[in-house]
Nucleic acid binder design. Structure first.
Lengths: 197, 197
DNA sequence: TGTCAACTTGACATGGTGTCAAGCGTGAGT
DNA sequence: ACTCACGCTTGACACCATGTCAAGTTGACA
């Protein structure tokens, strides 16, 4: 928000990037396309961002700001018990995925070619993994974690379940409605992680 | 096998492609790299395959032949009941993923840029989805499918659970041993799909 | 009037894919 | 022994996206 006022062109670039990635299919979005959409010359892009990877990286960070992800996470963090926290976390993060999906996919597509893109992606993913770890740790505190999984394993599994890939496969390829995705994921995660009494 | 005798250079190319994709990181594998590894000129590659996408596509098909995926699927198909079949399917397909992972990833990385690569990838994936559908249908026949999921949804979910992505995330990024992956996936799938009595 | 920042135009290096043309060696058929 | 076709090689080139460089333009502010 702050930055939107301060630097209109930069914001226009970020917004254009996001929109293009959302609508087009990722790698089809060239620097020149972004420039055109932001109504500046291709070269001017490089006055704001040193390269494509950094632009994508900045776009994700900007989305975090715009959607105030920290604020949205509050209900999850203040949940009274492990099970509620798990469901809240899935609901929040799962609801956020559609917003970042386009950029996430672009970043992911570049991770093989571009070391910086890989770093940016790994950054984001460890943040999500921390969220998963916190949830699992809450389950452990309540004695709810299934004895079949170590705490680390449970975190990995939840993280994998909630990956952008999985969301894409279900909600884009298989056309699941967003609410159904959330509901099924909550159920699946509960069954996978929570001990049967 | 047949083809290996018949056309040694072609096989050398396919094998080199596979090895490179397995060891290097996908897009780092250029046509010239493959040519060098196969000990022919870059141009000679184009005498065998019209383009990179088709080469990758052929490599997957070739791996199916070499590892005789059909034969391996037999135990799954002849399983006596739905639950056994589910576990056998996860065990077979899950065990096959490491063999094709390198090529799968390369194909996936190209799906945005290259329509043919996308087609090749979708091809493979619908094949897997058929496998998942057959398993789910066996569960339905035995009355074992959870009432919380429609048959289609259960298929989608199983397919997502068994995606190459998920395997990569758990076995590569998180360094799970292959056996652990299989065991946890079997358990997770059972809990997600099979009704609780 | 001067100057600074943001942006523009145009040219260019780099590196990968895919194409084209010409040549070369070897084995099979005659 | 001749040649003909096949599989491969060498070398040049077009194309296209990224990223760089240099020289202008414009407008606001002092």
């Amino acid at each position: 928000m702050m930055s939107s006022e301060k630097n209109p062109t930069r914001t226009r670039i970020l917004s254009a990037t996001r929109t293009l990635l959302e609508t087009q299919g990722t790698a089809a979005v060239r620097m020149s396309d972004i420039a055109k959409a932001a109504k500046i010359s291709r070269q001017a892009l490089y006055l704001h961002f040193p390269n494509r990877a950094e632009l994508l990286r900045a776009t994700v960070r900007w989305l975090d700001e715009v959607y105030d992800i920290e604020e949205r996470l509050r209900p999850s963090r203040s949940a009274p018990d492990g099970r509620t926290r798990l469901n809240a976390w899935i609901s929040v993060w799962g609801g956020y995925i559609p917003q970042i999906q386009g950029v996430a996919r672009a970043l992911q597509a570049m991770r093989d070619t571009d070391a910086e893109a890989k770093a940016a992606w790994d950054d984001r993913m460890t943040a999500v993994r921390h969220g998963c770890a916190a949830v699992v740790s809450a389950l452990v505190a309540d004695g709810l974690l299934t004895p079949d999984l170590a705490e680390d394993e449970a975190t990995d599994l939840l993280h994998a379940l909630l990956s952008v890939q999985t969301w894409e496969q279900l909600c884009k390829d298989s056309a699941w409605p967003q609410e159904r995705y959330i509901a099924v994921m909550q159920q699946t995660a509960e069954r996978a992680l929570i001990r049967t009494v």
